[in-house]
Nucleic acid binder design. Structure first.
Lengths: 196, 196
DNA sequence: ACTCGATGTAAGAGAGCTCTCACTTGCTAA
DNA sequence: TTAGCAAGTGAGAGCTCTCTTACATCGAGT
């Protein structure tokens, strides 16, 4: 226990979620571990289990927080993009790249298969809201069936997630791209989806 | 050791690479382990180390094999798509989705950051050849600088990889998509990249 | 002041993984 | 035929991880 901090942490639960983002950003989901999060906060490796019954419930809370923050980021980016519906949807792709390269928590975390069995109403609500926001942005671009709108959302996410994932895996390393470069290219590619 | 098989395997090296694909397809890169590959072949967990100095060198060999097979798959798909250059490049995206959903070994494996330090000329050559094939397909779609061609290849890969990655993470589970559905949608989205 | 519940710790069981080491087996070539 | 070597094996060291258990500490309410 470090001096200057009391025996009790204060808000370890929130701190665990925050530190989880840092671990995800540094190590990726592949090397995410409860132990690493505890180390980062300099608490014992048993401490997290006071707040989450197991690793997957911690990840579920991270997923919920990521869905909420990502939705905010997408909303802001869309508003900044102006009134044109196609611009607004494409801006969502850029926001996705920027958010996920910064935090490490993208759709692969938010919708991770290991969370399917975790009962967590907060997470369900946040992911629903996130999808709802994306569907609204897509629906504004053209009149189409609900199915078509969903397909457009999924295509936009696929573009954004593809760029992000390849960037995280170092695929663009030789070209020395920055996250902003990649985000801009994702915006451009996403835009192409609505003008074909 | 199972009866009917001699003490020596015959070609354990090749079998390890093949079994690695199966482990990747089932568990993903996240849960890939040398031990799991050895178990699948019913050899001792020490046996793989006769053929590969460490886990990363095994993965590097898998990467080389994946790059070679993926290049073949892309070449075949392009030829099947006919003469139109845009169709041929888009077909590569579909081939990518089909190959990677089947084998689990996509660009996240082929260009995995942990392989950057592994000296493996065979892998370097196969990845170079794969990129070369993609660059040729992209170059045929329009006259542009080498840089522009590279951007188009990267965008195409991003689309294909995004769809594949989300599919693998179960994002489309509720829509009950098959890999072929996803591949067709990737082709369509990739096509949009060349007609904007 | 005192108790009690919430939240921390230390210790460790049990599992899986990477990789090593000494030994064994069986093919190949002299 | 037999020596030598490539390629197996079993055992296990050493690491990290998840999660549990028994105990310690602190703050809040009586």
């Amino acid at each position: 226990m470090s001096p200057g901090r009391s025996y009790h942490h204060g808000d370890l639960r929130a701190a665990l979620i925050e530190a989880s983002f840092e671990v995800l950003a540094e190590n990726g989901l592949r090397r995410f571990s409860v132990a690493a999060v505890a180390r980062r906060l300099q608490v014992s490796s048993a401490a997290p289990y006071r707040h989450f019954p197991d690793r997957d419930h911690l990840l579920s809370a991270v997923s919920a927080a990521a869905a909420r923050d990502l939705r905010d980021a997408i909303g802001s980016a869309a508003d900044a993009a102006g009134p044109d519906p196609a611009d607004r949807l494409a801006a969502a792709a850029g926001a996705y790249v920027r958010y996920v390269t910064r935090t490490g928590a993208g759709f692969h975390v938010i919708f991770a298969t290991e969370l399917y069995e975790v009962a967590d109403d907060a997470r369900r609500e946040q992911t629903r809201a996130l999808m709802s926001t994306l569907l609204d942005l897509a629906a504004a671009t053209h009149t189409g069936s609900h199915e078509d709108v969903m397909l457009l959302v999924e295509a936009t996410i696929a573009v954004a997630h593809g760029y992000t994932s390849l960037f995280a895996d170092g695929f663009f390393a030789r070209n020395a791209r920055t996250a902003d470069d990649i985000a801009n290219r994702a915006v451009e590619a996403a835009h192409a989806l609505t003008t074909d």
